[in-house]
Computed example of a mutant assay.
Amino acid sequence: MKLPTNSILISLKIGIVSDGQYGERAFEQIRRRFPTEWILLPYPSSPVVDEIELTIPPCDLYISYLRHPDIAMELIRTGIPALLGINLGPGFIAQAHEFNPAVIGPETMCSVLPNTKFCQVNEYAKVFGRPVFYLVMDGDRIVWCKTIRGSPCGSTDAAASEISGQILDQEALSRFALSICHNCRAPRFGKTCDKEKAGIIHLEELMRALKGVNPKKWEELIQVLEKIGCSFPNE
């Protein structure tokens, strides 16, 4: 299996758009693989902003970590494809689609897949999004857990590194999920995105990788994971 390199993919320029609260870790991760610009916009104190004049550098794809809906909507009005790193809810997304159909508000940033209608999002999601792992096993022990695709916050890489060298059992899976929750930047029990969901997504994909190399161990652990909300519809 050929593993991806960390070379920059020069075909897509990404703008990480933030008001200063979130997005720094995504910027550090994404700029290793794509030409990436850090775009800092204001966070108004007023809940409603009537007149907005923003200077936004042109990019092929914006990833928005903006918390104020009026500022986020102004970004969306540029017509450039946008991923909402902070999902402002279904009502906001419905309104956004009136101005820009290429707006995606994923359940979590680690749930994005390269299967949208928009090539810019798909190119990004080949590298960052719903995790893909490559496992090397020695019996029940994970010799190496390699991230092929992971979350832009870096939690996938951290958890993969921590589980490498461990015996894969229920306790190891619990530590793996807790590592994801600890490093995840999503809000806890958020309405549209939360740490617990991110942990479950990573467990599901770790198990998908496990099935290919150790089906017996997969069969042993899958029943435990289904009890905590993991699903394996294609298994």
Rank of each mutant, 00 (worst) to 15 (best):
Y43F: 13
T36I: 00
I30E: 02
Y22Q: 06
S46C: 12
I56L: 02
F34P: 00
T55W: 07
Y22H: 06
E24G: 07
I39P: 01
R32T: 07
V17Q: 00
G23S: 09
E53L: 11
Y22S: 09
Q29R: 14
S18P: 04
I39W: 01
P47Q: 06
E28P: 08
L41Y: 01
R32V: 03
R25P: 03
I30H: 04
I52A: 05
R32P: 05
G20M: 04
P35A: 06
G23T: 09
I52T: 05
D19L: 02
Q29V: 09
I30G: 03
I30Q: 03
F27T: 07
V17Y: 00
Q29P: 07
L41I: 02
G23F: 07
Y22G: 04
A26Y: 07
P57K: 08
P58W: 06
Y22N: 05
Q29N: 14
Q21A: 14
F34I: 01
P47F: 07
V17K: 03
I39A: 01
T55Q: 13
W38D: 06
F27D: 08
E51D: 14
E37W: 09
T36P: 00
P47L: 07
E53D: 15
S45V: 14
E24D: 12
P35I: 04
G20E: 03
P47Y: 05
E24F: 14
P58R: 15
Y43C: 12
P35V: 05
D19G: 06
P47E: 06
I56T: 01
P35H: 08
P44G: 10
I39Y: 02
L40A: 10
I39K: 00
D19Y: 04
I56V: 11
R32W: 04
T36Y: 01
P58A: 14
D19M: 04
D50W: 11
R25D: 11
T55L: 10
F27Y: 15
W38T: 05
V48M: 09
R31W: 02
V49C: 05
W38M: 10
V49R: 08
I39S: 00
R31T: 08
E53T: 10
P42I: 01
Q29Y: 11
E24Y: 14
I52F: 05
Q29W: 11
V49K: 09
R25H: 10
S45G: 15
D50C: 11
I39D: 00
I30F: 02
L40M: 14
E24H: 12
P58H: 14
R31V: 04
E28H: 15
P42A: 01
L54E: 00
I52E: 04
